[in-house]
Design a protein around this nucleic acid. Sequence first.
DNA 1: GCACATCGTAAGCACATGCATATCAATGAA
DNA 2: TTCATTGATATGCATGTGCTTACGATGTGC
Lengths: 148, 148
Amino acid sequence: MAEPTRPDLAAMIVPLGRSLMAAEQPILAAHDLTMWEYVVLTALSTEPVRTQAALADAVGADKTRIIPVLDGLQRRGLLTREPDPADRRVRLLALTPQGRRLRDTTRTAIQRNEERVLRLLPAADRRVLLRALRTLADLPRDTFLPET
Amino acid sequence: MAEPTRPDLAAMIVPLGRSLMAAEQPILAAHDLTMWEYVVLTALSTEPVRTQAALADAVGADKTRIIPVLDGLQRRGLLTREPDPADRRVRLLALTPQGRRLRDTTRTAIQRNEERVLRLLPAADRRVLLRALRTLADLPRDTFLPET
DNA sequence: GCACATCGTAAGCACATGCATATCAATGAA
DNA sequence: TTCATTGATATGCATGTGCTTACGATGTGC
């Protein structure tokens, strides 16, 4: 039984994710956003989803738990919910200009902090890392599940 | 305000971590281990820690919540706890041969599955990704916190 | 028209987590 | 010697999460 040559991928990524989330927290607080609020603001501009349930699925949230998040964002004028004329069950979500601005300023602050950390890596490694992460992050979730 | 050229690092890493944890779950179950049990088994062979509290900190666990995990592992003969003669408050932890074997077979299965996913990346990217992740994962947690 | 599915919404339950508190035993410093 | 600190342990509380159930409104297919 040979010694493994690397740590588990999960063992590196999961704690790293925790550290990054912890790092985001003060930035989000300074922008008066919770994590899920920010996730929704970000997803609404990058994911072409039609239904709230699809949005929840896309961002890994629970569709029932996301309702109060959407309520809050709507109440603050950061997003709108309009019935879809093609299917009156559906509420179409859209960012307001205010929502877009808040998303952008928050994202800028978050990414600035991330760049500070990423600069600890060589530039070429940085580019590859981001490219590879993007590829992995875009994989369907069940890609990772073990085969039976 | 220019469009960002990349997703947030956290926005890629955190869901990826979730997917990897979900993928691990059936493998751990097949080896009769919980996630924290496996984390402890793995950490005991790679982290030179003396106290249980230090182990908990090293693996991002709560020192009080880790006690029942250690109890269970000890009861199953996977690890031993002996008083440290140099400081009788401390319980020195060590894997048994059985614990080492279980850790190894589990890790092999987990990494085999991870390799299957990693092979979706070009080989050179794979190497850089793992190297970069290792670097980032080894950073002290407060490296990531924003500067005041 | 009817049975079934879907969407949004609310709420319940079990469990995990982060943090705090408390206790006992042991250690180290003043 | 006294007191503060440390290590292990147990437990409580608040919060978050995953999943489930249920409901009303709407849509689809037969």
